[in-house]
Amino acid sequence: MIRHKSQHLTFFTPKAISGSGAPFFDTGISAGFPSPAEDFKEQRLSLDKELIKNKEATFFARVSGQSMIGAGLDDNDLLVIDRSLEPVNNKIAVCFLDGEFTVKRLKVNKEGVWLQPENPNYPIIKITSDNDFVIWGIVTNVIKKV
Rank of each mutant, 00 (worst) to 15 (best):
D74W: 06
A71S: 10
F96K: 02
K110E: 15
T58I: 01
K53V: 13
A57V: 00
P14A: 07
D26W: 04
I125H: 10
V142E: 06
L115A: 02
G21V: 01
N109E: 03
K41F: 02
D74N: 14
G65A: 04
I29P: 07
L73P: 00
I138M: 10
N119E: 02
H4G: 10
R62D: 08
V113C: 09
I143K: 12
N119T: 07
I2P: 09
D82W: 11
V108M: 14
S67A: 05
E56P: 02
R62K: 14
T13H: 15
L73S: 00
I69E: 07
I69P: 03
T10E: 05
S64M: 00
D77S: 05
Q7A: 05
I2N: 03
N121W: 01
F101N: 03
L79Y: 12
C95F: 04
G28L: 10
P36Q: 15
V88Q: 15
T58D: 01
H4A: 05
K104P: 02
E111Y: 11
A57K: 03
E100M: 04
R105M: 03
Q7G: 02
Q43L: 10
L45C: 09
I29C: 05
D39K: 12
Q116A: 01
V103K: 02
G28E: 15
L47E: 04
I29G: 01
G72I: 06
P120I: 03
A16Y: 11
E56Q: 14
V80C: 08
V80R: 05
K145N: 11
K53Y: 13
K53I: 13
V146Y: 10
K49S: 03
F101P: 04
P117Y: 00
E86I: 11
Q7R: 12
K15S: 13
Q7K: 08
L85Y: 02
F133W: 10
F96G: 10
P14F: 06
D26F: 03
I127Y: 07
N76K: 14
K126M: 14
T140I: 06
F25H: 09
V139D: 00
T58L: 07
F11M: 05
M68N: 06
L9R: 00
